[in-house]
Design a protein around this nucleic acid. Structure first.
Lengths: 139, 139
DNA sequence: CAGTGTGTAACATGTATAGTTACCTATAAC
DNA sequence: GTTATAGGTAACTATACATGTTACACACTG
């Protein structure tokens, strides 16, 4: 459990719930992900703030997907999760006046920016509906 | 000190040493990076194994760059460091038979592979000499 | 008001990098 | 050979972060 695994787990849950079209409690989702309800609430909190899911309390309550899978891209979910695990290489800040350090930082930042840009662009072109269709092809 | 900061630090040191063309002890390098000699030896161990630097013991000993900056790319150093911090998104392995999880993993892996490929390709096209030239332009 | 749900704070756990201490071996200078 | 200086490395601590867990407050349904 080293790195951030929220992204695939959240995608799994959202697509699953949307396909089922029914409310799921945090406890149900937790069993599905072999974790516990608090972790689920934390994971999905960003999606609620982003307007992709809604919650209701009390008996019969839980989580409900309120957008079409066509209207949600990987990018939307990634952003709603606050871009987990992004930032590929750090930059050093030990010698603000050293031109070598500055040049290293520039070179790494250029690659980093290009790579991040590409990733976000590709995420933006894939909808959750695309993944759901692929899942149906598999099964 | 959260993420892996070896890459920029190692680049800084190697370019600096090559430009100076002299041996530097782990202690000297440590002062330059505001850390301590053991961390430096750990950081540079991979570069020695990769044949980019050599070490000598005893008085007057230390680290020496043995390849031309033209002959070292960002990719070379990145690989010598064992690709620090790579792996952007994890894949979930909770339900081996779930087509949704499988489809999610495929979609994420596709982006991940493309992005990693692009990063390594761009790293491979930049030599440390390029960075050294950029540093001279800055100063 | 009893039962079921979310919302969250507080704390525990697992893992990775970084930093530190201690001790080993190798080598240059004398 | 002795001494000082260098790297090599194991073992430990510190820090950061995602995850897991416990406990409790609050909200809604019947």
């Amino acid at each position: 459990m080293n790195r951030d695994g929220r992204f695939p787990r959240v995608l799994h849950v959202v697509i699953y719930m949307a396909l089922r079209g029914r409310v799921m409690s945090s406890t149900e989702i937790a069993q599905m992900l072999t974790t516990n309800p608090v972790v689920v609430r934390r994971m999905l909190a960003g999606l609620r703030d982003g307007g992709f899911v809604e919650t209701s309390k009390g008996p019969g309550g839980g989580w409900r997907v309120v957008k079409s899978l066509d209207a949600m891209t990987l990018r939307d979910i990634f952003d709603a999760l606050d871009r987990p695990g992004l930032k590929i290489a750090d930059t050093a800040r030990y010698h603000p006046d050293c031109p070598v350090e500055a040049a290293v930082n520039v070179a790494l930042a250029e690659v980093d920016d290009a790579v991040t840009d590409m990733m976000l662009t590709r995420y933006a072109t894939t909808t959750l509906a695309d993944i759901a269709r692929a899942a149906k092809t598999i099964s």
